[in-house]
Design a protein around this nucleic acid. Structure first.
Lengths: 236, 236, 236, 236
DNA sequence: AATGAATGAGGGTTCATTCAT
DNA sequence: AATGAATGAACCCTCATTCAT
């Protein structure tokens, strides 16, 4: 998927001057370690060592550990979501397949690649480095939400979807995806509690799309109290 | 909420002896700081100061920072989920209201309280302290999933719900809740990107419950390709 | 030997008020720990605990750890050497038996009792607390040396001993004794390298007394080069 | 002797890179301070400062203060006693001059050099670090004793020496030397109580050698009570 | 008088950053 | 450009000492 992944079996590549590759290798090493251990618990020379350079070299490319973090975030979040938005604007016809395919495509690109760790990283570090949060919201959250919101709104307008709260539906669709990316680098990385991510995402999108269908009036008497005695909060 | 916060302008308030209250105050302070800044970035005397004691006192109650972390996790994750499971087992009748009310009740308890931060804390630190992950999976994840899984399965068996993949549906219901707790202490704590959590949870549960309803045959021509040219991965 | 040794099998003596015994118990505990671990490596509450009191109580009797050290030294070095000196002054007749019996008597008293540790303690701590050294020299070294010196000199004057350097002979007699006391609490306390102290002291005194005998002229051609090639410094 | 001592009035002498020299300089500084103040009372940055480096540099070469202590011991106790033993084995002829010269040679090498402090250091710290004692016994005590024992035994076998207890005689010869080394760094370093060490050692060896001479029967009626009333223990 | 909880200065150790080579 | 030895501020933790009970 990403051709820059350093082959892990070439430990001592023979002194070829690859000044151009250095920054990217450092970013990749830094991302992996920041995601795994957190920013504060990652030592600068761990990053350098994983990138195959000395500690001093790291500081040749990034003036401080914090700048390295920002570069990591900027690099792995430079999204092409805006481009997606433009494409979506042109599409006509039923929105359900559009939504399904767009989400699954984004998902497959994201979950497998190294960028899946950025969500955990942002969650962990945003309070210490609020600039990261602003960048993320501006570059990723808002354009991403906008795309999904647009599709949903168009489906509602055309009667394809029920008139649900669009913000909530956006979250219903996207939050599990973010959570799964996070899980991959958290519990999933160090416990036996794994999730079949691809299957879940397919099932989840399907479930939500079902939930968005206009109701067939008589089909479901939702929220009509049936036997009142049966209902109570189970964990008061 | 926190009447114990020492006013910072009293330089030497007379040394207090409160052996019983200290552990809880220290745990509360540690949770807040570990959640906000991360374990490694939190200094031991920050915790002590927030709890209104000196650094030495902290070490009177917990032998190391790591043990303090474990105590925080153990304290705030001692769940009453098992009790919930017992109650649920007795319930008869339609499962949709049971599910809705149980989830909302759990949600309201959790999101508002200090325990909502534990999810971010676990996400951030589980790779550094795998024992935390095992504890969390055993004490929270598995019993929690079991409760929801039981309800869903019973609804499927009775024909109230479609025969969906139960594991996926459990995740569809719960992951957004976890994500929202996490969000509260991450982006939500330091950017303007807020979410109306209560409304979203209500909407989300409703949406999923709709998606679980048995399908009315003619209602949705799902997955039928409509205009083939309209489909392509939106973020290439 | 010393009737104040606390029986170690009465761990909780039932609240009897023994204010008078406290200081001595503290001194005994402090001596044992200071000798074993050194002053700096001994914690104040270790001393208190070994004496069966709380940390606060220790500070009721001694205002600081350093004062406790001084009290230990003063207590265990309060020597009765001066009295010995008076007795010796009266003695007439051959000095060899006097010396032998006096040294053995002093040895037997000292080596077995707790005071044997004071030599190691002084060696270890005198550079950090020079006052201890001055006290020790004044109270122990000088009077002790004076006694032995007097006896030796009298033996020399009477022709019983050879006219050796008296200072050197004093050291030849006493230094091994000090060294053995030190050894008991150093290597002897934690390795298998033990010395049969009583036998050695008897042998040593005898050997030195022999060496003090007037020489029989033809007996020893000392310092006459014998086979010159055979002599060279063995560890150059 | 110590040309590396940094003059204290040059606040920032330009950072030096001397990877080879550092370990020895650190060991020398550490020995001096550990001997003078004891291990526990010596601060790591005192050692670093005396070696002319920063505290961090110390930890570049030794992973902890305790490892530094072990390195000091290992470095200054790497004895050439075994070599001496080989040489001694070849020597024929009278043993008295051999013994005298060997002891004086060893003495002169040891007392003047920095290694003279190791005895005090071992005495002070062996109970806290028993491995040091085992190392010392194996590397120094046992081979050293073996050399002296061999010489004495050969002298006894040839009739040159009286048939004394060899172990005791070894101690009679060596313990005062150890004690003098110890004294140099204890009382001798901080009180006026000095000993003319070279003279004493020469006298002492001579005294003991005299005591080892075979007795001329009629010369000394040792242990035969002469005037019985004159004998009594002077310090009862 | 006795206790032991509380304090905070101090010491061992780490690690981001610098700089001589 | 690259290295890695050197630095020192900062952090975890200890423990002598104090003081409320």
């Amino acid at each position: 998927m990403s051709p820059v992944v350093k082959p892990p079996d070439t430990p001592a590549l023979p002194r070829q001057r690859r000044k151009e590759a250095r920054p990217h290798e450092l970013l990749e090493a830094a991302l992996a370690l920041f995601v795994e251990k957190g920013f504060a618990a990652t030592r600068a020379d761990e990053v350098a060592q994983r990138a195959g350079v000395s500690k001093g070299t790291l500081y040749l490319y990034y003036p401080s550990k914090e700048e390295l973090l920002k570069a990591v975030i900027a690099h792995y979040l430079s999204s092409r979501i805006a481009a997606t938005a433009d494409e979506v604007r042109e599409i006509r016809g039923p929105m359900a397949p559009v939504l399904r395919e767009m989400l699954v495509a984004w998902w497959q690109q994201t979950y497998a690649g190294p960028g899946s760790g950025t969500f955990k990283l942002i969650i962990s570090e945003v309070c210490n480095f609020p600039a990261i949060g602003e960048f993320y919201v501006r570059e990723v959250v808002e354009p991403g939400h906008a795309v999904v919101r647009t599709i949903l709104q168009r489906g509602i307008d055309s009667g394809e979807f029920r008139p649900v709260d669009v913000e909530s539906a956006v979250h219903s669709l996207l939050l599990p995806m973010i959570m799964l990316c996070t899980h991959k680098h958290a519990l999933g990385a160090c416990t036996q509690h794994t999730i079949d991510a691809d299957k879940f995402i397919a099932d989840h999108v399907e479930l939500v799309l079902r939930g968005l269908q206009p109701s067939v009036p008589q089909a479901m008497p939702a929220r009509r109290p049936i036997k009142s005695s049966a209902r109570h909060a189970p964990t008061p």
